[in-house]
Design a protein around this nucleic acid. Structure first.
Lengths: 146, 146
DNA sequence: CCTTTAATTAAGTAATTACTTAATTAAAGG
DNA sequence: CCTTTAATTAAGTAATTACTTAATTAAAGG
């Protein structure tokens, strides 16, 4: 799936979810959708555009009328993404093995002196910065509980 | 699931989806999430509130720290909702059997006279109003193609 | 108690979104 | 061609959202 967030945003709207439900059942034209959902055709057209750009719909012209179909492949792709998400396992925290600096954490009383946190204790107290990926255990393990 | 749209809206945000991914792996406190996502704790706290109110998270206080957990039941419930959606079958349109008024449709030239659409042809031309659920075939079948 | 700390809430702002009406586009068909 | 029709796009608006900084709350611990 190209852009999961765009697909989710597209589907996370009451009107658009109703449109998807309707189009899964029948091949409604834009006017029919507008009548059923009691909105203007312009509003429906704009919603259809959002869904189309998220690859959730494919449109087909039939004479004067545009008929839209749900791309069921994309729906299934979304389900797969969620299944992958739900399958993420909890990683157990092993402070000692991973070098979590429990002791240094206790030393952090920087604000008393009004000074900047010295590098020696900054990491232990405030955890890794975005660019420090090595130690992932500050802030989420039991170090805090001591 | 109580409110599918609220759950979808909660999850359909880049930052919040990242929070969910992180919390599925580890028990991060709010500050740790803020550091990793390079946002203020206030911003994270507000996102956590959205997720909490969608029942996607449960929080637990540990001393000074709040630790949040993803409610995996809710994730699975969301997957079920999507599977139900994807399982909706296309209903074939049977105009004759269902009394679709193909003939009357052709008579609709109301706008020529500048008059209101007479009730006799209104339904056929413009389809059922929201309160007319009996005939679901105007606007989505091949009637238009004739 | 009093101070520190982590998290939340309040207040404000810029960007986005969901609609409206009006204008435009494009196919159908005399 | 010219008109009709269905759909889309343009322009504008009110509501919502994602953030910020500042103020508040609540537990921890000397």
């Amino acid at each position: 799936m190209k852009n999961t967030i765009a697909v989710l945003k597209a589907i996370a709207d009451d009107t658009r979810l109703k449109i998807i439900r309707l189009l899964l059942q029948h091949n409604y034209c834009v006017g029919a959708l507008a009548r059923r959902l009691e909105l203007t055709e312009a509003a429906i057209s704009q919603h259809l555009k959002v869904l189309r750009e998220a690859d959730l719909l494919v449109g087909e012209r039939r004479g004067h009328f545009m008929h839209y179909d749900v791309d069921r492949k994309q729906l299934r792709a979304l389900i797969s993404e969620f299944e992958e998400l739900a399958a993420i396992q909890r990683e157990g925290c092993q402070p000692k093995k991973e070098g979590c600096m429990q002791k240094k954490r206790e030393k952090c009383r920087v604000h008393e002196s009004g000074k900047e946190c010295p590098e020696e204790v900054r990491f232990a107290c405030h955890g890794p910065r975005a660019d420090e990926k090595e130690n992932l255990h500050n802030g989420h393990c039991n170090c805090h509980e001591s």
